[in-house]
Simulated assay, not measured.
Amino acid sequence: MKLIINGKDRESAAENLAALWQEETSELDLPGPQGFAIALNGTVVRQVDWAQTPLSRNDRVEIIRAFAGG
């Protein structure tokens, strides 16, 4: 389905936010989503709710990773 991820039109097979996070970070070989936040249509979704948060065509998703330092 078509989604807008971090401002770019993308196609995704993910059905929920957890699957989208895995899809988007698969190349990073991360142990888990620690340090990440996801906003769906302008609302931040708690990590514990990602698997139960479905995606719909044309949703706007922002995936943000926190970094330490300055």
Rank of each mutant, 00 (worst) to 15 (best):
E15L: 12
N58K: 12
G32V: 13
I5T: 02
F36R: 10
L30K: 01
A14E: 08
G42E: 07
Q34G: 01
L28A: 09
T43C: 11
E15I: 07
I4H: 09
A68K: 13
A66R: 03
E15P: 06
G70S: 04
T53E: 03
K2I: 05
V61S: 05
G7C: 01
I38S: 06
V44T: 05
A13M: 03
R65F: 04
L40Q: 08
I64W: 04
I5L: 07
R46N: 14
K2D: 10
F36A: 06
A18E: 12
K2R: 14
L17G: 08
N16T: 10
L55Q: 06
R65E: 06
A13H: 12
T43H: 15
I5V: 03
W50A: 07
G32I: 03
A68P: 07
R57Q: 11
R10G: 01
G69E: 01
D59T: 11
L40V: 08
A13Y: 07
L20M: 01
E62W: 05
K8V: 07
E62I: 03
R57A: 10
D49Q: 11
E23L: 13
L20T: 02
G42Y: 08
Q34D: 02
D49M: 04
K2L: 14
K8D: 01
T25D: 05
D49Y: 11
V44W: 14
Q22K: 04
E62T: 07
S26E: 14
R60N: 10
D59V: 02
V44A: 13
G42V: 06
L30W: 08
I5F: 00
T53D: 06
I63F: 04
G42F: 13
A39L: 00
N41W: 13
E27K: 13
E62Y: 02
G70N: 09
A37R: 03
A37D: 09
A68V: 11
M1E: 12
K8H: 09
A18L: 12
V61Y: 06
L20S: 02
G7R: 03
I4G: 04
Q34I: 00
N58H: 15
V48H: 12
